[in-house]
Write a protein that binds this DNA or RNA. Structure first.
Lengths: 247, 247
DNA sequence: CTGAATTTGTACGCCAGCGAACAGAAGGCG
DNA sequence: CGCCTTCTGTTCGCTGGCGTACAAATTCAG
């Protein structure tokens, strides 16, 4: 829990992509928050009054069904924003946003974001609006791919996808997350995750123990993952070329 | 193929929801087109130069995987618009848009739409932008629900959902669509659809024969469908209250 | 150190859906 | 009319994932 290199809003790639003048207008209203594991940023039907720009945290968008079964429909880390209903309209959504990996985020009052979103600059429109709209398109792509992946791919493949998606949004090669929680995200049984993770461990690709997962061989994971992972990654890069390319 | 009550752009509920002055600005550029069954409005990676406002047609957004397997990720009829990448940005998407039910649509050059989308009226912003953004949110909801449904629900339930979604977008209680095509949409085997449809027919809920499906007992379908159908419908109504309520 | 709680491992029967293969039925077309 | 294509019905074995139940291992709290 030491402070990693002094948190800055610009660690979030959407904020980093803004020209200085636009960033300045927002920065005063940005508020650093700690997001503990498992915290819900919003619940279904809840009016959103903030958006969150994760910097070192990861947030899952989860849908929980009537019978309690759940499934992750998208994930956002420092490459994104949580709470698109604020600027897209509707003010509410039918899913939960849950902190999947504890860390920091900057939050912003809905009003402040909406104001900047709607802003028409001196001569041209602001860059925030097109940026957020293109991010929303990348979210669409992610959700579409999730739907397809849920239909056609095995738990093994999906676990690889999930690990890689998380890894892309974290600094090291380690994540902590129990198999139970991963199962909730993927919408499968915990035993299924145990089995799939066991295979990956036997193959020497990962090591895990009681909620700590270390990725030992990333290329190995990439060789086992389904196409969905790469499709989503590429689509993000295409839509948002101005963000820093992943390290 | 007789002309049903003289096609009008206002049969599309998004266009119908625009105030007259905004509609007028667009109407000159609207072009009536016939959409034959199976036509692709766009393919993955293809630059979109038009958006389509279906009136009597239905369009499926399909994702096709490397191995040829496919899955529907959303559907749009007279309540929506096809080609959101035009105003959302990106200009391209990774899925196909296929005509699922032949009929009419009005299409509009991308430039014309973008212009109106960005318009800031004399005193206030236009209503087109918030309208389309809220529609996009409803599409998000639909895709999220598709992902969840793919994960957790049976083919039987999904067939009911699919039938109801189509029915909502058509005038009568009849649709033509072979089981093979339905299977492509749902991303399942044709035999699975045969079996599920057989059950519905035995139960007296539908009648079908060689690509013609007649819904005999809509409440019966509603009693068998999973929650996903209703969630999507309600969310659309919430987000777009200004559109005419379904007949 | 000890008991409790959490996390992971394993096993068993079950079933939905897959893949393949084929047969009948209904239209379309020459 | 008769052939051919398209569409639908049915079967068989297989497997991935589910539900259940319980055991082992690790960590935590007192």
């Amino acid at each position: 829990m030491l402070n990693p290199p002094s948190p800055s809003p610009r660690q979030n790639q959407l904020l980093a992509a803004l020209p200085d003048c636009e960033f300045e207008r927002l920065s005063a209203a940005l508020e650093l928050v700690q997001l503990p594991l498992g915290m819900a940023l919003y619940e279904p039907g809840m009016e959103l009054d903030h958006v969150y720009f994760p910097t070192t945290s990861i947030v899952s968008l989860l849908y929980v069904m009537e019978n309690g079964a759940s499934a992750e429909i998208a994930v956002a880390g420092n490459e994104g924003i949580v709470g698109i209903a604020v600027f897209m309209g509707g003010g509410t959504v039918q899913n939960r946003a849950v902190v999947q990996s504890a860390g920091h985020a900057y939050r912003l009052k809905g009003r402040a974001l909406k104001q900047e979103f709607a802003r028409v600059g001196g001569r041209r429109h602001g860059t925030l609006q097109p940026l957020l709209l293109r991010y929303t398109m990348s979210l669409l792509a992610q959700m579409a791919q999730t739907a397809v992946c849920n239909r056609h791919h095995t738990v093994d493949q999906q676990l690889c996808r999930w690990l890689l998606l998380s890894l892309d949004r974290l600094p090291g090669n380690e994540l902590h997350m129990t198999q139970e929680l991963i199962a909730n995200m993927l919408g499968v049984r915990r035993e299924g995750v145990t089995e799939a993770a066991g295979k990956l461990q036997s193959a020497g690709l990962i090591h895990y123990s009681r909620g700590h997962i270390t990725v030992l061989d990333r290329p190995g994971l990439e060789s086992r993952v389904c196409e969905c992972y790469e499709v989503v990654r590429k689509e993000y890069c295409r839509l948002l070329p101005e963000v820093a390319p992943p390290s």
